[in-house]
């Protein structure tokens, strides 16, 4: 049976950028984007797209991608389209800036209500920038549908989904009634690459852009005005960083010396 699926994808600063390039502007509590490193679709969200695509490969269906932000880069947010998603809706407005998990989940859930039909909603287990891991569950709660978090496998049949949920010492197989929201983890496996055909098709597709008013959101519900959690401070932890490098004529000797050093320092 073909399914209607929605995937929420967030544009984030590349989480794999070298840690040394990470800088904060303390006066604005904002991260300074590292020069020359373009933003990406949050990796778990790409895997959420992959989870939806695997179901679409099996039984057909439609995948709508939803991204919320401001000044979203088209090349970035269109990536799920080039992987095989069908439609892209952007919730794009300055007013969305400075929101919290609550206001963001509320905006996404409101947009999903406007989309109307859905069997499965996918999110990443957590966004690779603020690492909250709340928005997916929040959307499910607002929509009044069940959720299964941290999935590594999702199959859908007969109005139900069978989900493998990662737990710290293994996994659980959970059956959930549809419609449901699933958050996806990296154990699902790598997301597929965009094909050339996909990239060309994506280039031709224009995303639909919704402003807060288009989905009936009041200014008091979004961004800084709509938040329940207040950010007081964003800062970088101080690191001392004084590593003693053990040197020797050969690597094997260095290994032996390292062991001796650990004994001397009473580490072993």
């Amino acid at each position: 049976m073909p399914l209607n699926m929605i995937v929420c994808c967030k544009q984030v600063l590349d989480p794999e950028a070298p840690p040394a390039s990470f800088k904060i502007d303390p006066s604005t509590n904002k991260v300074i984007p590292p020069p020359g490193v373009p933003p990406v679709v949050s990796p778990f969200d790409e895997q959420a797209v992959e989870a939806a695509l695997r179901i679409k490969d099996q039984q057909g269906g439609k995948i709508t991608v939803l991204s919320l932000g401001n000044n979203l880069l088209r090349d970035v947010v269109k990536k799920p389209l080039s992987m095989g998603a069908d439609e892209l809706i952007l919730l794009e407005d300055e007013a969305f800036e400075g929101g919290d998990s609550w206001s963001i989940a509320n905006a996404l859930a409101t947009a999903i209500k406007k989309i109307g039909e859905y069997d499965l909603i996918f999110c990443g287990r957590q966004a690779a920038d603020w690492d909250a891991g709340q928005v997916g569950t929040g959307i499910a709660e607002i929509l009044g549908i069940p959720s299964v978090t941290v999935a590594k496998k999702v199959e859908a049949t007969d109005g139900k989904a069978k989900v493998e949920r990662v737990i710290s010492d293994g996994y659980q197989v959970i059956e959930v009634t549809l419609p449901a929201l699933i958050t996806v983890s990296n154990e699902l496996g790598e997301a597929r690459y965009a094909t050339l055909k996909g990239i060309m098709a994506a280039a031709k597709k224009q995303p639909t852009v919704w402003k807060p008013a288009d989905i009936g959101l009041e200014p008091s519900q979004i961004g800084t005005a709509g938040r329940r959690a207040k950010l007081l401070k964003l800062f970088q932890p101080v690191k001392e960083g004084k590593c003693e490098i053990i040197e020797a004529d050969t690597p094997a000797e260095a290994g032996t010396k390292l062991a001796a050093k650990l004994r001397e320092a009473k580490v072993i």
Binding site: T256, A260, I268
Partner: peptide, 23 residues
């Protein structure tokens, strides 16, 4: 190395056997 107290730079395959032996 920013987090480490001690370190060795090189190919682990050549370092680890001797290290393990000595430990």
């Amino acid at each position: 190395y920013k987090e480490a107290r001690f370190g060795v730079v090189g190919d682990w395959k050549q370092i680890l056997p001797a290290f393990t032996e000595k430990v």
